[in-house]
């Protein structure tokens, strides 16, 4: 099972990198820009045919290591590989 984990800063956590990118986009004329968030994406392959199990294991991995709950939140997307 393929698992795609997206990790982003929690709302309210200062993200100076995203702010800098936002400023640059503004200065390029993209004045309809409302907000920028920047995170990371981690793709895993988990040995199981069970989507729920894959999601559960990925959540455990996020809690143990991949995301820091002080500043980050994560989303898990599970894709069955054909």
């Amino acid at each position: 099972m393929q698992v795609i984990i997206t990790i982003n800063k929690k709302p309210g956590v200062l993200d100076p990198e995203a702010q800098a990118v936002k400023q640059s986009l503004f200065s390029l004329g993209f004045d309809d820009l409302e907000n920028v968030t920047m995170g990371k994406q981690i793709t895993l392959f988990i040995e199981t045919d069970d989507q729920e199990r894959a999601k559960y294991r990925a959540a455990k991995m996020c809690e143990a290591l991949l995301a820091n709950a002080v500043i980050e939140e994560y989303k898990i997307q599970v894709n069955e590989l054909s």
Binding site: L14, P16, E17, A20, N68, V70, I71
Partner: peptide
Amino acid sequence: PGFLARNQEL
């Protein structure tokens, strides 16, 4: 407790 984030001025 807490977290050490990227410096404000990058």
